[in-house]
Nucleic acid binder design. Structure first.
Length: 299
DNA sequence: GGGGATCCGCCTATTACGTCA
DNA sequence: GATGACGTAATAGGCGGATCC
């Protein structure tokens, strides 16, 4: 296994108000970590310009050779370049318009690889991959808690602070969002599974109840006990999961609902409310929280 | 105002690398 | 030392919105 794994805090949850199957933890939302308290320096970073960003992690393993700062400066210029600049004017795919991300040589300009090691050292076309230090990962996580997207200024400031390239910060956030979404999908999947199980159980129960009612129907109405007269229409109360009779439960307080003769008055009141606003949307999908948690990109 | 070109950021799928058992 | 599994940095391609002309 890996050494000490950084806790990515990927625990996710569904909307508590709509979730009939409460799951542990509730940390994911548009801001994935709304409950976490952010340190002051995160605020400083997130609200700072490039100039204001303070180098706070001087001892960080930067996976870079000395002198990489010059590359960073160059990148900052690139990131801040106007749309009309030479580089940004290159149209087409990202690989064409942002050739530096892959360390290739375009237009006579050469970039270093992501580790800050030149391509000459790495060999032609190789794709070396850096391993972010724990400190770098922690800082990125803290920023991700605050915003799961970064403005260009924030990205540059963060890159400068971590001694990374802005593109690396951008990629980290993209991958982090992807991991979060993947985790959310797993949670949603589990939710659907449980809901399906519940519906299956409910279906069985209703079929059994219908069979019982059909058996009762075979008897003459005169033979039925008063509290077992078949209702004109059957409705299932979503709260108590019983069959109720609208005509009886809503008209007379002295007449009890077919299947709730033992219900306390409070329940009858509940049934009246329910009948006034029937369970118009039995489709669980309409109530499920799927997608909304991560589809909003402008958190 | 409409439409094409371009830029930009993001998403998704995939690749490739580093680490560990 | 070789190998497979796993995590993840990085790449590639596509899409939609914003802006410009």
């Amino acid at each position: 296994m890996m050494q000490e794994k950084v806790d990515l805090r990927l625990s996710l949850s569904l909307h508590p108000s709509q979730n009939p199957f409460p799951l542990p933890s509730s940390t994911y939302s548009h801001s994935p970590f709304p409950l976490c308290q952010k340190p002051q320096w995160i605020n400083n970073l997130l609200h700072s310009s490039v100039e204001e960003a303070q180098p706070m992690l001087k001892g960080i393993d930067v996976n870079r050779k000395p002198g990489a700062e010059s590359v960073l400066e160059e990148e900052e210029g690139e990131e801040a370049s106007s749309p009309g600049s030479t580089l940004s004017s290159v149209s087409g795919k990202r690989s064409e318009r942002d050739p530096f991300s892959s360390g290739v040589v375009v237009h006579g300009l050469e970039r270093t690889s992501s580790r800050g090691v030149s391509d000459e050292e790495d060999g032609e076309g190789s794709r070396k991959k850096l391993r972010l230090s724990k400190e770098q990962s922690a800082v990125l996580e803290e920023c991700f808690k605050e915003h799961n997207t970064l403005s260009p200024k924030q990205k540059i400031a963060l890159a400068k602070q971590l001694n990374l390239r802005p593109r690396q910060v951008e990629v980290w956030f993209q991958n982090r969002r992807a991991r979060t979404k993947l985790k959310q999908n797993e949670v949603d999947c589990e939710y659907l599974k449980r809901w399906c199980e519940r519906l299956t159980q409910e279906n069985r129960r209703l079929q059994k109840e219908a069979a019982e009612l059909r058996a009762l129907k075979l008897l003459s109405p005169m033979q039925l006990p008063v509290n077992m007269m078949p209702p004109t229409t059957l409705t299932i109360c979503p709260s108590c999961q019983r069959v109720i009779s609208p005509s009886k439960s809503s008209n007379s307080s002295s007449t009890t609902a077919t299947a709730t003769s033992s219900s306390p008055p409070a329940n009858r009141q509940h049934h009246r409310l329910f009948l006034a606003a029937p369970y118009s949307n039995p489709n669980p999908w309409a109530l499920a929280p799927f997608g909304s948690a991560y589809l909003n990109r402008s958190s």
